[in-house]
Simulated scan of single mutants.
Amino acid sequence: MARYTSSYLVNASLNEIPTVLVNILESCGFELVYQAVDYMMAREIPGQVSYSKLVVIEVLIDSTKAKAKEVPITWVVKNDELPLQMNNHCQQRFEQIQQTISEDKQWHLIASVAN
């Protein structure tokens, strides 16, 4: 199973985060499957790649550590594909999402770490 994670500290209020996250996910071709106060799950829309390569994203919003304008967010991007190559489908989607997050104008990244 391919799995890539990244953590961000964003300059936005806790109330603004869900809207921004949904916009980012939709702009990258993902559909929201589940949403709670501090958790979102989205999946890649089927039809472009085989089922085993479909990417699922989990977004964890750490509301316990959130401040007025600083919210920690962790993204987990994964699929059932074995990461036999460095440049696999999950890695490509992970990089696309990272690029979209860093370029989004609705918030300012304070810090980021990718694994």
Results as ranks from 00 to 15, higher is better:
1 M>F: 08
1 M>P: 11
1 M>G: 10
1 M>H: 09
2 A>L: 03
4 Y>C: 05
4 Y>H: 12
4 Y>A: 04
5 T>K: 14
5 T>L: 12
7 S>P: 00
8 Y>V: 03
10 V>H: 00
10 V>K: 00
12 A>R: 03
13 S>L: 05
14 L>S: 14
15 N>L: 07
16 E>N: 08
17 I>P: 00
18 P>Y: 08
20 V>Y: 12
21 L>A: 02
22 V>M: 09
23 N>D: 15
23 N>C: 03
25 L>T: 00
26 E>V: 02
29 G>M: 09
29 G>I: 06
29 G>K: 09
30 F>R: 03
30 F>C: 02
30 F>K: 06
30 F>W: 01
32 L>V: 13
33 V>D: 08
34 Y>L: 13
34 Y>A: 13
35 Q>F: 00
35 Q>N: 08
36 A>Q: 13
36 A>C: 02
37 V>F: 06
37 V>D: 08
38 D>F: 01
38 D>Y: 05
38 D>A: 13
39 Y>C: 03
41 M>E: 15
41 M>Q: 15
41 M>W: 02
41 M>K: 15
42 A>D: 07
42 A>W: 07
44 E>K: 05
44 E>P: 02
46 P>A: 04
48 Q>E: 15
48 Q>W: 01
48 Q>L: 11
49 V>S: 01
50 S>N: 13
50 S>P: 00
51 Y>C: 06
52 S>L: 10
52 S>I: 13
52 S>E: 15
52 S>V: 14
52 S>R: 14
54 L>C: 05
54 L>A: 03
56 V>M: 12
57 I>F: 07
57 I>R: 06
57 I>E: 08
57 I>H: 09
59 V>W: 06
59 V>C: 07
63 S>V: 11
64 T>Y: 08
66 A>I: 04
66 A>F: 04
67 K>H: 03
67 K>D: 04
67 K>S: 13
67 K>Q: 15
68 A>Y: 08
69 K>T: 10
71 V>N: 01
72 P>D: 09
72 P>Y: 05
73 I>A: 04
73 I>F: 06
74 T>F: 04
74 T>D: 10
75 W>R: 03
75 W>T: 05
75 W>E: 07
76 V>R: 14
76 V>N: 09
77 V>W: 00
77 V>F: 02
77 V>N: 03
77 V>T: 10
78 K>G: 05
78 K>L: 13
79 N>S: 15
80 D>S: 15
81 E>A: 12
82 L>D: 12
83 P>K: 02
83 P>M: 05
85 Q>C: 09
85 Q>R: 14
85 Q>V: 14
86 M>S: 11
87 N>T: 11
88 N>A: 07
89 H>L: 07
89 H>A: 06
89 H>C: 01
90 C>W: 01
93 R>H: 08
94 F>K: 05
94 F>D: 05
94 F>P: 07
97 I>S: 06
98 Q>W: 00
98 Q>H: 07
99 Q>H: 12
100 T>N: 04
100 T>V: 13
100 T>W: 03
101 I>T: 09
101 I>G: 03
101 I>D: 05
101 I>A: 03
102 S>I: 02
102 S>Y: 02
102 S>T: 07
103 E>D: 12
104 D>R: 06
104 D>L: 01
104 D>H: 14
105 K>H: 05
106 Q>W: 00
108 H>Q: 15
108 H>C: 10
110 I>H: 06
111 A>M: 05
111 A>S: 06
112 S>M: 08
112 S>E: 12
112 S>T: 12
112 S>N: 09
114 A>L: 11
115 N>G: 15
115 N>M: 12
115 N>D: 14
